[in-house]
Amino acid sequence: MLIINSKEVIWKKDETISLLLKRMNFVFPMIVVKINGRLIKKDKYSTQLINDNDEISVIHMISGG
């Protein structure tokens, strides 16, 4: 199980950040991703794997309006 933005989400083996964002339908381009409090740079999204029990923040910047 993962925690994404304080909500439980099923963990999937061999899932990268890019794949997770796709699964969650997080398509907004201006986001910040942290895994267990550690900032992940955008160029690592396609290679950084997610471990079971990771706590992930996907912060969408405000934008809009």
């Binding site: 933005n5 304080s6 909500k7 997080f26 907004f28 923040s57 996907v58 912060i59 969408h60 910047m61 405000i62 934008s63 809009g64 309006g65």
Partner: peptide, 18 residues
């Protein structure tokens, strides 16, 4: 009008202001 505050992502998606 949304010009005072646009908090949907912060609230609904990011869960930053529970």
């Amino acid at each position: 009008q949304h010009d005072e505050a646009w908090l949907i992502f912060m609230d609904m998606v990011n869960n930053q202001i529970p």
